[in-house]
């Protein structure tokens, strides 16, 4: 059986790739996709913990995270769409209206 540590390592790598996407890319859509990638990486961790402990709570968390991710995507994409209508760009460097 593949040990939990191996799943955690893959999860850490996927999470780091998501962080790279948020830090390096400028396209708001790609940044958003990277956030989804990070959520997925955490889900892998939670399910592997659930298997290790033989406890259902980890899987319940993952279900709730899925619902929150769906809600987040609906609102986030609506925000991106509305920013695009106002500024005609999805480049986060040009969306600095609230920058001090």
């Amino acid at each position: 059986m593949v040990p939990t540590v191996a799943y955690l390592a893959v999860s850490a790598v996927l999470f780091t790739l998501g962080v790279v996407g948020v830090l390096v890319r400028r396209n708001a859509l790609i940044i958003f996709m990277s956030i989804e990638l990070m959520l997925n990486a955490v889900n892998v961790s939670l399910v592997s913990f659930a298997r290790q402990h033989g406890h259902a709570t980890g899987q319940v968390f993952v279900l709730l995270i899925l619902a929150v991710a769906a809600a987040e995507v609906a609102v986030g994409l609506a925000i991106i769409l509305s920013v695009f209508r106002h500024r005609d760009t999805v480049d986060v460097d040009h969306v600095n209206l609230m920058k001090w």
Binding site: P3, R51, G54, H55
Partner: peptide
């Protein structure tokens, strides 16, 4: 994690 035994049977 090594100290925690993996539960057989899973969830």
């Amino acid at each position: 994690l090594g100290a925690i035994p993996t539960e057989p049977g899973g969830v």
